[in-house]
Nucleic acid binder design. Structure first.
Lengths: 219, 219
DNA sequence: CCCTTCTCTAGAATATTATTCTAGAATAGA
DNA sequence: TCTATTCTAGAATAATATTCTAGAGAAGGG
């Protein structure tokens, strides 16, 4: 799988023999990565359907044959990109949550992560928003379900004890998620339209306030 | 334009001569409407890119020539559908707001409308969510901007006085919108995945609570 | 009622673009 | 070194969006 490509530590393998080896060497970007990078750029700038395989071939400098060998279809490329991006977002979210101190810090910090991730990964964020699960190929859809399932488990582990402690309202998980991240997500959508970059970060405190006000135990 | 096709009152013109006229007559569904209906069904079931013009032709029983005469391209069909659906949603929202009694009723009622509209227009709702503005043709994009602009004006007219009266927090409009509808929107997204229909309506009270808690004046 | 003009319908012809296929190069393992 | 497997390559094919040409239907004017 390709899902965690970006998480690969820089130290993995010393210096694999490359035909034209040279000094000052940086990790060999596999063909697949080049394709994904090219596809992201193209999907983002002209949209999925307007981006042709030929465009992707030219930009990535990877042949048609290789592209199809690895991804199977155009949808396959989009699917891999989707899984890759979603994973990156989710890993960060869980990390923030686990590292947070108090409950309020956790709630606010998670919103902050959302905002920062979107600001720092605008193209990926746009892509994730536009291409929701349903148009994904079967394989990728399974990957996405796995990722989401995993995330929900982690969220729940963090959440339950705090409900028990009377710090947070008791809510079904999907509703919890919607109230927590919905506003940030909706604002992100707005901010990502148009090419000028109105930073989301400015709105972070307000969004965090709103989340906290809606989630803290009413008592 | 086709944007308000669905709003055409039933009484417009008595009984236009139809070649094979018959009793018990219902308004003549124009070719364009048939195309939009077919496209909605197909886009929803197999996705935009997998739905072919040929499929649309077969299901709508309108010829290729007519389809292209009216919509110009496949994207054009999607665009018209988008504008049409967005308009339907927005008109309802504004109506609810204007008819609401107090401020709290307004805030809650708008959330209610969102939830009910999604429940009652699942396919359209899914389509709107998947196909955000950026992949729209230029013409349609302008229409969408008009619609959104109009909505924001109406929202603002309702909102300003209530901020002045100290009933609602003061927020920039995009942020207001995000906090107000973000959670409902995010939950809708979740509820519309998978084909089984978990009604959104059940969550309405909770969503309304959350919106009200986040928007009412902190004082 | 006939002529003219404009819009709409139709489907065959064309162009674009995703996908498949065949063959050879690189790589890994024995 | 030999063998098997994976990867690369681009030409050939197939699917599908779009254009084109011709005619049918409605609208208006005399």
């Amino acid at each position: 799988m390709d899902g965690k490509a970006n998480a690969r530590p820089a130290s993995v393998s010393g210096a694999p023999k490359v035909s034209g080896g040279r000094a000052n060497w940086s990790p060999p970007p596999k063909q697949g990565d080049k394709v994904l990078a090219a596809a992201l750029k193209l999907f983002d700038s002209v949209g999925y359907s307007a981006a042709t395989i030929e465009d992707i071939r030219l930009r990535s400098e990877v042949s048609i044959g290789s592209i199809y060998h690895r991804f199977g279809s155009k949808e396959g490329i989009a699917g891999a990109l989707y899984v890759d991006s979603l994973g990156s977002y989710q890993r960060g979210l869980v990390r923030v949550l686990l590292e947070s101190d108090g409950t309020e810090q956790g709630v606010r910090g998670a919103v902050g992560h959302h905002v920062r991730w979107v600001d720092g990964n605008r193209a990926r964020a746009r892509f994730l928003m536009r291409r929701r699960e349903t148009e994904l190929a079967q394989v990728n859809r399974r990957d996405v379900e796995l990722l989401n399932g995993e995330l929900f488990i982690q969220l729940e582990e963090w959440y339950r004890p705090r409900v028990a402690a009377g710090e947070l309202r008791e809510l079904p998980l999907p509703l919890l998620y919607a109230i927590w991240f919905g506003p940030a997500q909706e604002l992100a959508r707005y901010a990502l339209e148009g090419s000028k970059p109105p930073r989301l970060a400015d709105a972070e405190p307000t969004l965090a306030d709103a989340a906290w006000a809606a989630l803290r135990s009413a008592g």
